[in-house]
């Protein structure tokens, strides 16, 4: 492989990983934007997403061994699995908000954030105790057909990841920019009291934020399983922390920021893996985080102080 092909290959891989991190980062950023809450239970909504997807795939007779699908059955299985996973995770997110966070509404300080850490542990332990602690094979029914550029290759699966992420992120952006509820979300993020006095139902806005963020985490969990061909109860922590870093890097609360941050983290991970050694990926990612925060404390696209005057 020439050095250019190698670079191109890692760029392709990085964009794929980055798309997954971006989907996961969006959930952190949407909820933070509206409630100024860092939602650590998001880590394990993502993890549960991978288990839900695995369960749905097994209903289609896909488990463990490699069964490849083509054409319509492939598209059908992927779409159904994605839809079920996203809806299930969205509802899980709404449930977490309703049961664990709404009772704390209006309580000052870090209580709500600590609660999300508690919820996160409950989720991962429930999965460990019911599904077992061992790593599971995650089936990938997508044939490994690839487009070759020199010796670098872009697989169908990677195209699917990009297309899916583009559609989901585009959809989210369109929803937030254009729909009435999306505008209410932005208004609430910018000035919750004023939004309330326009007649916005703030609880409904928060519920929507949790649903959307968690549904995207479900999609990311599905992609994770397909990409790495495994899942276990512990995957939420590493991927979640990187995605959270992506959100902070881009400017937490800022939707395009989370997308860019996610892609950046994915690229860094791929490049670091190739040129420095995979073990150094986290060192580089988190060093970069520190560097960006020192130079631009609000993140790449963030604003320092909310303009509330």
């Amino acid at each position: 492989m020439s050095s250019f092909d190698l670079l191109l290959q890692q760029f392709v891989n990085g964009l794929s990983l980055g798309a997954m991190y971006a989907l996961l980062a969006l959930g952190f950023t949407i909820v933070y934007g509206i409630m100024e809450l860092i939602n650590f239970s998001h880590f394990n909504v993502f993890m549960i997403g991978s288990f839900v997807a695995m369960g749905v795939l097994s209903l289609f007779g896909l488990s463990g061994q490699t069964v490849l699908l083509h054409g319509f059955p492939l598209v059908g299985v992927l779409v159904v699995t994605l839809a079920v996973t996203m809806i299930a995770c969205g509802m899980l997110g709404v449930g977490i908000e309703r049961l664990a966070l709404r009772p704390l509404r209006g309580v000052q300080g870090p209580m709500a954030m600590i609660t999300t850490i508690g919820v996160s542990y409950v989720l991962s332990n429930v999965v460990m105790l019911t599904m077992g602690a061992n790593t599971k094979n995650f089936p990938n029914p997508i044939p490994s057909v690839a487009l070759h550029i020199g010796t670098a290759q872009i697989t169908v699966f990677q195209f699917i990841i990009w297309a899916l992420s583009a559609v989901l992120m585009g959809g989210l952006y369109f929803f937030v920019q254009r729909s009435k509820l999306g505008k209410a979300m932005r208004a609430t993020a910018q000035d919750p009291d004023a939004a309330l006095m326009m007649g916005v139902d703030v609880n409904r806005v928060i519920m929507t934020a949790f649903f959307l963020g968690s549904a995207l985490a479900g999609a990311a969990g599905f992609i994770f399983g397909l990409y790495y061909n495994f899942t276990n109860f512990g995957i939420g922590f590493t991927a979640g922390l990187r995605a959270f870093t992506a959100a902070v890097l881009g400017g937490i609360g800022n939707i395009p920021g989370a997308m860019i941050g996610g892609l950046l983290i994915g690229l860094i991970e791929a490049m670091a893996g190739q040129y420095i050694g995979a073990k150094w990926a986290d060192v580089i990612i988190f060093s970069l985080l520190v560097l960006v925060l020192v130079c631009r404390p609000a993140g790449l696209l963030g604003r320092l102080a909310p303009t509330k005057s």
Partner: peptide, 25 residues
């Protein structure tokens, strides 16, 4: 309908979107 102290517009929404928010209900 309120006209709030210090205006309290939604600063990162357009003027038109602010007017839309007024008609939210």
């Amino acid at each position: 309908a309120p006209v709030l102290e210090a205006r309290r517009l939604f600063p990162r929404m357009t003027v038109f979107e602010n007017l839309e928010m007024g008609a939210f209900t």
